[in-house]
Design a protein around this nucleic acid. Structure first.
Length: 672
DNA sequence: ATGAGCTAGCTTTTT
DNA sequence: GCTAGCTCAT
């Protein structure tokens, strides 16, 4: 095997990391040190040099985006036809794949549906209602977060261990029991179950564990610092036979502890896996010296870290600028001005504004619309979480899986069919009593003429339609045609057309896009599987636009120019973070700052404002403590006083038709 | 069953 | 200041 170009490009420690194949390996990879490169080259080497079958490699990421990128890059390296890396995916997608094969082992049917947070919440609310639990006293959202926590710890209801003082949690245990039973009845899983069920299957069935762990000759894990307890457990099972695991991560970029991630997994990797080899990647290929020094000095204020010395061969570059503005509007205006100046040299696509909380994008949006600076918002409401998209999917799910009561309940009165709480309650009770699905219960109640006349008409037509659509599905009608049929015949399209406001036009657009994205799938089944685990469809990347997103969402990305606004005490570090988690909360906020700064390749602009309009009030704010932690040698501080550049609301500006972000809609409402 | 009107609460959110 | 989610009157 000759040394190929991609291999020559690696530095010494990267090469070492690629070539260390057998036994546990932990790669401590600083920001911008080329960790994805190492992982992808390693996969290529395993296939080409070590003659490992692609389907004997397990490669795990956290996001769909990361696995897509990894797949693309491996394919680029191995120039042959697309290789079958069937076990490259997210923790959840791989778990779902395993679980489909062994669903029976945990009491599920192989065609189970995967439910999201929204469905979880509705289910919990339903349980609370029938159990007479006062939702006002305990928020269902809190209950859900506790369930998730338990699942992340690997606990079925019977495994839950509580301390004496956890009385509130104790009262949730009964709900957890009912909730889990309900999930089985409905033949559905929540996200947490996907991984938890797999671990339980491995625990109870050594033969299944052996089958998989024997097959996976090599296991690679990206962003290891973000794994939680159950994920680390899951990996332990899958490494049982061959014990070849390579994990890549950066403890300084652990920013998801609130989602159950435990840096402990990363810091104590060598305790969990005996004879671990540790390799550090400390050469940074991304940022200038000034940016790197600023980030490094800042993160040194954290006590709980491995510690590393990042270096770069690059030049010093520009100083990191720290700008003080009078208020949020000035900050948005000033930022816009700087972008206008820089955009000849650095493209807008390579410019990003990274915020702590998504609401902060608003002021920037308003300003950018005003001056006609194109932008895109990454994050916010996910495509597949939009109500209209969820409605479409609920219709499809009901057809695919008649037991899916959650979906049935979602669409029973959408569009309006005069079926309200009372009727729904009646159906629910009848279903429960006879152990029917809601759909079956509805049909029976109609037959028995027990539904109020007005509701009966609506309900009857719905059940008849569902039967008709299901027949079409069983006759192998194309899934896109089926959805079009549903939209027409249910009156859903009409409902959206009737209300002629902007939002509904948007909704119709989104549905068109959904129909379009369905083309990529052969059948309804594979489409539904994709949808349950996906959050977005790739789009809106065309054109030159400034990127606005949260710092969380920016992890793994890089830009020439990065703006970090709103560095004020209370907002960043966020008050809540410190209140809830104290010092460890503060350290996580600092890691977030570190992630933010290290996204930048050339220019970094940090800013704060002395006054901010926040939650309906003007508050005086102080510069974030993080600003004081930046090294003076690498920073240039300035006070920016804008002239009286008040927003002129009467100006007529033609907006590009495509910009229909929340900010644009708000803006439209305001100027009307 | 449904729309108007009021109130509480307001971070991050890979799946 | 905004808005989701509930209550209450129609």
């Amino acid at each position: 095997m000759k040394n190929t170009d991609y291999y020559k490009e690696l530095n010494t420690s990267q090469k070492k990391a690629v070539e260390y194949f057998d036994g546990p390996l932990l790669i401590v990879a600083g920001a911008g040190s080329g960790k994805t490169k190492v992982l992808t080259v390693k996969i290529a080497h395993l296939i080409e040099k070590k003659q490992i079958f692609p389907n004997q490699i397990l490669a795990v990421t956290f996001t769909n985006k990361a696995s897509k990128e990894m797949r693309d890059r491996v394919n680029k390296i191995i120039k042959k036809k697309t290789i079958d890396l069937s076990w490259l995916g997210t923790f959840h997608s791989i778990s779902a794949k395993i679980l489909r094969k062994h669903a029976k082992a945990v009491g599920l049917n192989h065609n189970f549906s995967i439910i999201d947070q929204d469905d979880q919440l509705r289910l919990i609310k339903n349980i609370c209602k029938s159990d007479n639990i006062d939702i006002k006293k305990i928020s269902p959202n809190y209950i859900r977060s506790i369930f998730d926590k338990w699942k992340n710890l690997g606990w079925y209801p019977e495994d839950v261990v509580l301390k004496k003082n956890q009385t509130l949690e104790k009262s949730f245990l009964n709900i957890y029991n009912i909730y889990q039973r309900k999930l089985f009845d409905l033949n559905v899983c929540d996200f947490g179950d996907l991984i938890l069920h797999c671990v339980k299957i491995f625990q109870k069935n050594p033969d299944i564990e052996k089958m998989y762990s024997k097959n996976f000759k090599y296991i690679l894990v990206d962003e290891y610092q973000d794994t939680n307890h159950i994920q680390s457990n899951w990996l332990k099972h899958l490494t049982a036979y061959n014990n070849n695991i390579c994990c890549v991560g950066d403890d300084d970029q652990s920013i998801y502890s609130w989602r159950g991630a435990e840096v402990k997994n990363f810091l104590e990797f060598d305790k969990n896996y005996k004879n671990t080899k540790i390799i550090r990647l400390e050469k940074n290929y991304r940022s200038t010296q000034n940016i790197l020094s600023a980030a490094s000095k800042l993160i040194e204020n954290n006590k709980n870290r491995i510690g590393k010395n990042l270096y770069t061969n690059g030049d010093n570059g520009e100083l990191v600028s720290v700008n003080c503005y009078r208020n949020g509007k000035d900050e948005a205006t000033g930022t816009g001005d700087i972008i206008e100046n820089l955009k000849k040299k650095y493209s807008l696509n390579n410019t990003a504004i990274l915020v702590r909380a998504i609401f902060q994008t608003r002021e920037f949006e308003e300003r950018f619309l005003k001056i006609g600076l194109p932008y895109r918002i990454i994050g916010g409401v996910k495509f597949y979480e939009r109500a209209e998209i969820k409605d479409c999917i609920a219709y499809l799910r009901v057809i695919y899986q008649s037991k899916d009561d959650l979906s049935f309940e979602r669409i029973i009165n959408v569009p309006k069919r005069s079926i309200g709480d009372a009727t729904l309650k009646q159906i629910n009770e009848y279903a429960k009593k006879n152990n029917y699905s809601l759909e079956l219960a509805s049909k029976k109640l109609i037959e028995l003429s027990q539904i109020k006349p007005k509701s009966k008409i609506g309900l009857n037509s719905l059940t008849k339609l569902i039967e008709k659509w299901r027949k079409e599905y069983l006759n192998k009608k194309n899934h896109i045609k089926i959805l079009q049929m549903i939209l027409d015949e249910s009156g859903y399209s009409q409902m959206l057309k009737d209300k002629k406001d902007m939002e509904n036009e948007n909704r119709l657009e989104n549905i068109k896009e959904l129909l379009n994205s369905m083309k990529e799938f052969d059948n309804l089944e594979s489409f539904l599987e994709h949808v349950s685990l996906a959050t977005s469809i790739d789009k809106d990347w065309e054109g030159e636009k400034v990127n606005l997103m949260t710092m969380h969402a920016s992890k793994g990305l890089e830009f020439d120019v990065v703006f970090l606004p709103g560095w004020e005490e209370g907002l960043f570090p966020h008050q809540k973070s410190i209140e809830e988690k104290g010092d460890s909360g503060l350290e996580e906020e600092r890691r977030l700052a570190y992630v933010g700064i290290t996204r930048s390749k050339k220019i970094t602009n940090i800013s704060f404002s002395m006054n901010r309009f926040y939650q309906g009030d003007w508050i005086e704010s102080m510069a974030s403590r993080f600003i004081d932690e930046l090294p003076n040698a690498n920073v240039r501080k300035s006070n920016i006083q804008k002239q009286n550049d008040d927003f002129d609301l009467n100006q007529d500006i033609e907006f590009e038709n495509e910009i229909k972000s929340p900010g644009w809609i708000r803006y439209q409402k305001r100027i009307k």
